[in-house]
Design a protein around this nucleic acid. Structure first.
Lengths: 245, 245
DNA sequence: CAAAAAAGAGAGCACTGCTCTTGCAATAGA
DNA sequence: TCTATTGCAAGAGCAGTGCTCTCTTTTTTG
């Protein structure tokens, strides 16, 4: 109250707390990048910070809470990458924007493999992410939804096929996530979303070693096919152009 | 070299060693299923086996070696599931066989989530799978290749699109993995392979929680689209049938 | 039958997450 | 401004981990 600004409302102690919390996360992220989540040790973080290990428990009640904080940060980082890519391609068509966002997510994953593993690898042992992570986790998906929303206000978007027995589920998903999009599109989008992370995961986790060499081109083509699958069709995009009648 | 028989060549000691090794793996697999890879503890396995922890090191030089053994077993288990599904649908058309194999892999993953995480989740910290795992890891892929091989000897298979700049890579991959298949098909197959594991991973790791409810139908449709993508097209399968001219 | 190899037991080292108590410093209320 | 409260870090300690080493017993082998 005494100091004016709104960003640092409390006294020196509160400010210090914020800084220390950030320093802990930063150091933890460094260890994460170096050795992976399972070798992330509270004691090592404390050691590197020149502080005793029990002191960290004033900031994070447990190792899992530290991990949760890092998970949220990771979701936000990849979400921000996606949003930036979208904004930088605001003038491009929906399909190019789609490609750019996929590429951005991939690049983030390749640059931060351990953080990617944290959010899209096997959940850390017996650990289930708390609800706090949900909004951060949704950001990338929202970007994709936005792209398709835009596409639907223009032209050049087709309705993906949808079997009759999946229609109720597709309508439910559409109502939950994008009421302004057709159920066909929402269902296809969710599938494409999962498949995108399959492609990225295989590359990040080394499953493509000795299999795919020219990964840039391979990914670009796969993503183009995914775009096709959600209805983002160029007027003339090859022999398999979707032709909804 | 000296003793003749191939199944139980050595004396009682060698037989005991095989049994103990199997018991260790079995107990470890139990712990894995219960708590996940990161909580798998050599000491706990030894305790449950009524033996002192250092004794296990006579059988597995390190915890990572135990994990590697479990990884190989897991690859073989899912590979066997895939092969069984293929054989049980030997009379069906390639597309139905494709669907059956995908479904089998998914079911195995849902039944053994922690083992699935072992082979397709984030690699255990700082751990890189040794070359020993390669043949076991390839089994599922071989099943898919076989299905497409069969399909190419019959009808009802289309060539997926392939951009010109990806053709060299596609030809290289085809030469490496399936010289008798067209490069277009091999490239599409590898993409579909990764995407399949994206779908399964999202389901196993809970990313579909609160998103997809009717997962059986959703998966079935997605897999049908994947089949379409690799050229396994029914004569009349909807508006987006591939039509290579 | 004796020498060699294999297996288990047990102690011990360095490390982990986490808890609890103790002393110190910053804050807030009178 | 003085004092009571609160926040923080330090240190010791517990139970657990992977792994190594030595020692004894048992089995195999020459």
């Amino acid at each position: 109250m005494s100091t004016a600004a709104s960003s640092t409302p409390k006294g020196a102690r509160a400010r210090a707390r914020i800084e220390v919390t950030a320093a802990i996360k930063e150091q933890a992220r460094r260890q994460l990048a170096a050795d992976g989540a399972a070798k992330l040790s509270l004691r090592a973080v404390a050691r590197d910070l020149g502080v005793v290990s029990s002191a960290l428990y004033r900031y994070f009640p447990s190792r899992d809470d530290l991990l949760t904080a890092l998970i949220i940060d990771a979701y936000n980082a990849v979400g921000e990458s996606a949003e930036t890519a979208r904004d930088e391609h605001a003038d491009a068509g929906p399909r190019d924007r789609w490609t750019a966002v996929c590429e951005a997510v991939r690049q983030w994953a390749l640059t931060h493999p351990h953080e990617y593993a944290l959010i899209h690898g096997s959940p850390v042992p017996g650990y289930t992410a708390p609800e706090t992570t949900i909004p951060a986790a949704a950001r990338v998906g929202q970007v994709f939804i936005g792209i398709l929303r835009d596409a639907h206000q223009g032209l050049g978007v087709a309705k993906p096929p949808l079997p009759a027995d999946l229609r109720p589920e597709a309508e439910r998903m559409a109502a939950d996530f994008a009421p302004d999009l057709p159920p066909e599109t929402v269902a296809a989008l969710i599938a494409a979303w999962a498949q995108l992370y399959g492609l990225i995961g295989f590359e990040v986790f080394g499953q493509f070693n000795r299999v795919v060499e020219d990964r840039d081109r391979f990914f670009r083509h796969a993503v183009s096919q995914l775009a096709h699958g959600v209805g983002l069709v160029y007027p003339q995009t090859g022999p398999t152009a979707a032709a909804p009648r």
